[in-house]
């Protein structure tokens, strides 16, 4: 994999999170009934950062959950490598809540579709909104994000790598491109 372009650094990610936090509060008119749910893996640290930032702004700690969408994937019967199931930890009732789903990259929309099904199996939220750090286009389903850190036009053969301190040891968003050495390897 060859790095093609550097899109965001730590400071850029921080500013995007702060802006999204403000937008969430503005759109939902405060923190009433508001909950955050991060989609594994990198949506989880992003949801925690949003919760911390919102606490700094409003002084209210939002309930924050973790969603594993493996059981709701639509490609389970076609994938050769079976994904490992991790825990879903949503320790509150989502019924009647304003749920903000958080993920790192919005691409085909299939993950978000799975996440919405997973949330609805847990209860009946009043609203589901979607916050993503990067929207790279190429939707395959009628899904859009309510809060976007950065819109990033890409080609399908490119890879958008979001790296976060909590999962990868550093904060950055880069576009990578497969090079000759990756031939035969998937992505």
């Amino acid at each position: 994999m060859r790095e093609k372009a550097r899109i965001m650094d730590a400071e850029g990610i921080r500013r995007a999170v702060v802006r999204i936090a403000h937008e969430i509060l503005e759109r939902n008119k405060g923190t009433q009934n508001l909950v955050l749910v991060g989609i594994r893996r990198r949506g989880v640290p992003l949801a925690c950062r949003l919760a911390r930032t919102i606490e700094e702004i409003e002084g209210a700690r939002l309930p924050t959950g973790v969603l594993d969408i493996t059981l709701y994937r639509d490609d389970l019967s076609t994938r050769l490598d079976q994904p490992v199931v991790h825990r879903t930890e949503v320790p509150f009732d989502v019924s009647g809540k304003r749920v903000v789903l958080v993920d790192d990259v919005l691409y085909t929309g299939r993950t978000v579709r799975a996440a919405m099904d997973a949330i609805m199996d847990l209860g009946r939220p009043q609203v589901i909104q979607l916050a993503v750090l990067v929207d790279r286009g190429h939707r395959e389903l009628p899904i859009r994000a309510d809060y976007v850190g950065k819109n990033l036009p890409t080609s399908r053969r490119e890879v958008v790598a979001v790296r976060l301190q909590e999962t990868d040891g550093r904060d950055e968003v880069v576009i990578e491109e497969p090079c000759a050495a990756d031939q035969g390897k998937e992505r």
Binding site: L71, D121, L122, G123
Partner: peptide
């Protein structure tokens, strides 16, 4: 792997609607 997977799936049994579409 089996024990870890069971650990992740156990939560489903305590949901109001005990069903996943997998």
């Amino acid at each position: 792997l089996i024990l870890d997977t069971a650990d992740s799936l156990k939560e489903i049994m305590f949901r109001a609607i005990k069903k996943v579409p997998t």
